[in-house]
Design a protein around this nucleic acid. Structure first.
Lengths: 221, 221
DNA sequence: ATAATAGTGTCTCTAAGACACTATCCG
DNA sequence: CGGATAGTGTCTTAGAGACACTATTAT
């Protein structure tokens, strides 16, 4: 039992928080300040505090709030990692979460410059050596995200509240790591219940304006 | 902390163990013998014993061994349920597992007649009132199983080591709750890497013999 | 006009659904 | 032979991939 009144030690929520930046699909990494594995990069995580967290899902949300100061649009369980050897402090349970952050919010995070957390290209991050078993975790979170998008889920939570179809297409293409055909994509989107055009709203800018879309009320990633 | 030396109380593995019986798709329910919720039906579950279980997945396997005396072919995490109110003993974590048992093994279980566990039609079981939040759990486990089969995963672990294509088709159809077209199904199976015909092996019996199949070595549900 | 981005049309190919058909066993 | 189950052929349709095409804006 830990000294600070936490009754259930070594139950963690670890979060793979994704966003889209200039470098492409990125994941938020945090540099560990304490032992064990101090100074290594890790997925941001936090210990379950039963007094505060109504559920472990709430722990994950709290971790995101604490690390980046905003609330993620979509937080989902991926898999539980458990065992005696994965953390030197003892038998531990870590529930891995996959979360998505909108471009707006991700930019706010990037502006923090706390030096404790930073966005790293997902591809680069998987090559990095991470603390504990977070390398495996990141790989699984990525696979989880890719599988969902491949099965035609729309990663709207990575985008702003209104977005053009090309924004969405680019997001899918970045996640999948392969180009997405414009015509077939738009054909699918016409029949898609999850999004709808916002009448009269266009992305103004250079060249031809683009119709803007938004998620329909009941949308679930 | 519990008295019997278990250090991490209230971490459970609860298992929705499915098999195919005469009544169709069935789930194993256990009648609770102890408080709380004594005498209610529940998904079989067990507490994490860090000294014994190398991981919580091992707890799930142990639960299955203890309850039915055989090892399940396929055990997968579905979702973690957690919170203060779901179990009167205090803040608890329950990782729900979905597991499949082959017909051979399921029959052995049915023969046990321990009166502590029994196979209940999945449809009926969802209508029953179960202990704790096990009703929600069962619903999610079923949805998990259906989603996998809908996405063309093959529930081979519900069948014996060798099986006819009709056995497999019937299993899919029972899980999905809707008929599956024979011709399209067999067409798919011809191109399916997960199974292969066993040369020269046929189901003998009344009328025309059926070619038997088996899972290919690397098969994963 | 030209560049650049937004959005459409159309051909092809694959795979699924529907359902009628043939094949092989038993007695 | 007929009855029952095993397995095939074929028509149609829905949707994805490929890719060339048109449309609308700014300069």
């Amino acid at each position: 039992m830990l000294s600070d009144g936490v009754i259930y030690p070594l139950v963690f929520a670890d979060v793979a928080l994704f966003s889209i930046q200039e470098q492409g699909l990125c994941v938020l990494l945090a540099r560990r300040t304490n032992e064990p594995e101090a100074n290594k990069w890790a997925l941001p995580g936090g210990i379950l505090k039963p007094k505060i967290d109504a559920s472990l899902d709430q722990t994950a949300l709290r971790v995101i709030r604490d690390k980046v100061g905003v609330s993620a649009g979509c937080v989902e369980q991926v898999r539980l990692f458990s065992g005696e050897t994965r953390d030197p402090r003892g038998y531990s349970l870590s529930l891995l979460y996959c979360a998505l952050l909108s471009k707006d919010q991700a930019c706010a995070v990037a502006g923090l410059k706390t030096s404790k957390v930073c966005w790293v290209s997902a591809e680069l991050a998987t090559a990095k050596e991470l603390a504990f078993d977070h390398g495996v975790m990141l790989a699984e979170a990525l696979q989880f995200l890719r599988a969902k998008v491949k099965h035609r889920a729309l990663p709207l939570h990575l985008l702003n509240a209104t977005f053009s179809l090309l924004d969405l297409q680019d997001a899918c293409s970045l996640i999948l790591g392969s180009p997405v055909d414009k015509s077939s994509f738009r054909r699918r989107m016409k029949a898609e219940a999850g999004i709808r055009p916002v009448p009269g709203q266009f992305r103004e800018g250079a060249y031809r304006p683009a119709q803007l879309y938004q998620a329909t009320p009941g949308f679930q990633f």
